[in-house]
């Protein structure tokens, strides 16, 4: 009799947990989806380099997003299994301005305060077969003008040409991606190769 009640309770508990898990599982199906183009999501500045460690350290409190002045930090609200509620930046939509507020407010070690030069969100990369100056379709220089880090991060290849080139000082904030006027955005942020140090 006791074993039976125990089993009953066990099954009831499992059913309740299963229902809860199911509710979470069906949500992405109910949620409206944006165009699922392959996006290059960045972590906020100061994030732990290892993304698994970042996911483990982040408690999903949303504080980084709540202090972000350009509101560029967004959250995996419905998508992502283990990364649910963790922050990301979609640079093509809105880029980071490197103001340090999110690093200062983060209660955990997911984002830690570090000097601007040590930030490693990635490294910008330019498609030289599409960028206007590189294919001789006029002068532009929007990415070079907007860069908050100046010459050490991005500059012109030659002084009389407006062909941009990314340098080792780039921290991957993505402002160049946001500002690029080309419809196909031939500049994006990739994860930093190990051989390029700041």
């Amino acid at each position: 009799m006791k074993r039976r009640t125990f089993l009953k309770r066990l099954i009831a508990g499992a059913a309740m947990l299963g229902t809860a898990a199911l509710l979470y599982g069906v949500t992405p199906l109910l949620a409206p989806r944006r165009a699922t183009a392959k996006r290059n999501y960045l972590r906020p500045p100061g994030a732990l380099a290892d993304d698994a460690a970042f996911t483990a350290a982040c408690i999903g409190c949303g504080l980084c997003g709540e202090v972000c002045p350009p509101r560029c930090i967004k959250f995996h609200t419905r998508d992502g299994s283990a990364t649910v509620n963790t922050p990301y930046i979609d640079a093509a939509e809105k880029a980071c301005i490197l103001c340090d507020k999110c690093m200062e407010v983060c209660p955990t070690n997911a984002l830690t305060v570090m000097p601007r030069g040590d930030i490693n969100m990635g490294l910008a990369e330019i498609d030289q077969t599409a960028c206007y100056p590189w294919v001789d379709r006029g002068i532009c220089g929007a990415c070079v003008s907007i860069c908050p880090l100046g010459k050490k991060a991005i500059g012109y290849k030659m002084w009389n040409q407006y062909r941009p080139e990314v340098r080792a000082g780039c921290v991957g904030c993505g402002l160049c991606v946001e500002v690029c006027p080309h419809p196909s955005v031939p500049i994006w942020v990739v994860s930093r190769p190990n051989d390029i140090k700041v």
């Binding site: 809860a20 509710l23 979470y24 069906v26 949500t27 992405p28 109910l30 949620a31 409206p32 997003g65 709540e66 509101r71 967004k74 959250f75 609200t77 419905r78 649910v84 509620n85």
Partner: peptide, 12 residues
């Protein structure tokens, strides 16, 4: 309010 939509937790 600020992220433009409810998350998965609401259903839960």
């Amino acid at each position: 309010i600020a992220q433009g939509g409810l998350g998965a937790g609401t259903i839960f």
